[in-house]
């Protein structure tokens, strides 16, 4: 059963997108990734509205005090196995917002990040490459 399940998980990635305090640059790039030009549905990636349906939480931006609890709550609402993908320099390490009075830290300070996509903002191709690398990690069974 396990190999079939892994195959299904690799080939069907439903994502939910959360902005934890980004400047919106990364979000716009994520939206472009979902346009017909890049067509991620051909790779089995779909954007879902509900965290209950999602496998991957795509987080953009440094985590602000306001967003912290909501980020944790949305992550807790996802069914196991839930993967976290940090998109953009801010989500990875705070970026330009590092040390701001309203910023708690990066995503990895709060959640286990399974895949990080660097860039300010990363191009859609880089985001797709991030998804591909995440699929490869799921195939190898690396993220818990």
């Amino acid at each position: 059963m396990e190999p079939i399940l892994t195959w299904a998980r690799v080939n069907s990635i439903w994502a939910v997108h959360f902005n934890s305090g980004s400047c919106n640059g990364c979000d716009i790039e994520i939206l472009s990734t979902l346009t017909p030009y890049y067509d991620v549905e051909r790779l089995g990636i779909e954007l879902r509205g509900s965290p209950r349906h999602a496998d991957v939480l795509v987080v953009t931006g440094a985590v602000t005090r306001q967003a912290r609890d909501r980020l944790l709550r949305i992550h807790a609402q996802m069914p196991d196995p839930a993967f976290v993908m940090a998109v953009g320099t801010c989500a990875i390490g705070g970026g330009v917002f590092q040390g701001c009075y309203n910023v708690v830290g990066s995503v990895s300070d709060l959640l286990p990040v399974d895949m990080a996509v660097p860039g300010c903002p990363p191009r859609p191709a880089a985001i797709i490459a991030g998804f591909a690398a995440l699929m490869e990690r799921i195939r190898k069974g690396e993220p818990a």
Partner: peptide, 19 residues
């Protein structure tokens, strides 16, 4: 667009069953 691969609904269902 190019669209999903032929096994997409099957993969979706199996993944959901395993979640």
């Amino acid at each position: 667009r190019i669209g999903p691969r032929w096994f997409q609904p099957a993969a979706d269902t199996m993944k959901l069953l395993g979640n």
